[in-house]
Nucleic acid binder design. Sequence first.
DNA 1: TGGAATAGTTCAAACGTTTGAACAAAGATA
DNA 2: TATCTTTGTTCAAACGTTTGAACTATTCCA
Lengths: 340, 340
Amino acid sequence: MKKKITIVDIANHLGITPSAVSKAFSDHPRISDKTKKAVRQAAEQLGYHQNTLATGLRRGRSGLIGVLVPGIHFSFFSTIIKAIEETLSEKGYSVIISQSRDQLAKEIRQLDNLMKAQVEGVIASVSLETNNSAHFQKICKRIPVVLFDRTLRDLEVSKVVVDDYMGSIKAVDHLVEKGYRRIAHIGGLSHVEPFRIRQEGYRAGMQKHGLEILEGYEQSSKLTVADGESIMNDLLKLPSPPDAIYAASDLPAYGVIKCLKERGIAVPQEVGVVGFSNEAYTEMVSPTITTLEQHSENMGLIAAKSMLEQLQHQYDDKEYVPQQSTLTPKLVIRESSNRK
Amino acid sequence: MKKKITIVDIANHLGITPSAVSKAFSDHPRISDKTKKAVRQAAEQLGYHQNTLATGLRRGRSGLIGVLVPGIHFSFFSTIIKAIEETLSEKGYSVIISQSRDQLAKEIRQLDNLMKAQVEGVIASVSLETNNSAHFQKICKRIPVVLFDRTLRDLEVSKVVVDDYMGSIKAVDHLVEKGYRRIAHIGGLSHVEPFRIRQEGYRAGMQKHGLEILEGYEQSSKLTVADGESIMNDLLKLPSPPDAIYAASDLPAYGVIKCLKERGIAVPQEVGVVGFSNEAYTEMVSPTITTLEQHSENMGLIAAKSMLEQLQHQYDDKEYVPQQSTLTPKLVIRESSNRK
DNA sequence: TGGAATAGTTCAAACGTTTGAACAAAGATA
DNA sequence: TATCTTTGTTCAAACGTTTGAACTATTCCA
């Protein structure tokens, strides 16, 4: 392909030095307007693109931010990344994405790659396998780190999460209000922060209403549709099967409904179902699913802003105190739990 | 934050020169195994990360690939990006994502940013507003470009698309086979390649079966759920309303079904519906939607591979002839069209 | 008319790495 | 013993940019 145009080419073209060109671009006061205009025009004409590798090297700032998530094909993550990219690109940063595929080893490797790429900060949601924070501990000493949703308890960095505890309480409150009493919970793997907390909230909610959590009412799984189906199947075999399910995610909630429909059990009349996340399909399926909106777009926005703030602090050489932003989930009441 | 560790630090630490360290890392044959081992150990100990800005600058290769899409929150794009990231990161490339938000101006700006970041190639799907290819013409002279799905006709670069024409024919064939005759089409904006071709395929399919396209049977829209609903409403007002709808996307197909359900018109008994894309929800809603699988993951994989191939050719200084990969869409028959 | 101030530029070093050439020391060859 | 190889390293320049200091005209003021 064609050779790259550099600042030197422009300088030669105009018969001035590269440094004059550089200064013209950065609007240096000592460069004449005439020169600035000429430089800009020559740049346009020659098809010049500032080389941010060189700039970054010289200035010690790459203009790159790394985003690390389990997988971008999950709508929750892609929505967040959308917001992150929009916010950061507006401030002149480029976003490098990388996926852990929910594997710790891959997460470590990807983190290392991001460091090599000289990212100025990392925004991440950890993998399901991540049970220690050593790899993050290392990097958060060097650059700002913001964790969202799936965070690490022992890592002192800024975090953005939804109030999962409160979300669970809202879900249980709602189900109780609708007359359900034997409420079971389909949780995720409990070493993952949000799932642990959702379960705790479920317990607290039940206790608040003086309801007993019967043997077998607390299930945990990988939260797929199939998990929801098979767990519901098992739950129905219990001596006293539940009359409502609160699932820690929408996919198993859908699985539960599928199972119930197949067995001719009416939702919400006989069994109520509540999910978590407010994925797009929850209002498309039938019955539509009651769920907790976790404001993912907002989450991305806040994570990005927090990162920008930290970078600014660092630049100003001010100390930054990590802070946790907690979003309040909103209960979206739909058909699956809304019986009269 | 802490200062960066460089190759120089390692050199000083070991009492050798930076260049020896560099050669040790790249496994230079003239460096002793003892030194290599020592270097690696010191690197680990000091927490060294190779600075790819510097490497990239020196070698004229950034190791960065830009991906430009209308928006990553669309599952079609996020699935593709997932595959692209996986494929490219395996070969040591990092992926920078950027979004056009379906705006031409933003697309141009983002493309410029990617060039500044010195990406070695760009994989893109153009915005809805993109009606000329000038901005792409410029960059594809400098670096490899791969376009997917929403391509540009007059741009001679490698492309990955599904055979939209064939997809439409399959959809029409299927509907005809099921006994539908008055088939209408809800298309997208026709200056966008895939939508134009889907419409052409629809026409060809109708003609093939000797079916007439009645006045008002060809609609175009932005393909939202609401568009599907309102267009279906209008179609029902026609003197001879259609008995089947082939929509260029799943969202309007769902809208169509929603509208029909509300009016008590049976799907598929009275009206058949076929969508396009095989989005996850098409098999969750009721009735499940017949649609065309466009193999998005595969598309990302092929786009990434095509990029790698071009980069390799460029590296070997061989000529590369742009090629178009066409995936055959697969008709996934579900309830919405499957009447007896 | 001399000196200072100002404007517009050039100079040179630096960012962290790579890489071919040069070099020194040791061993092998004749 | 002189020369050639081989091994392991150092040297120096380069990638494209930025930036404070230095330099040279030109203008200004008294």
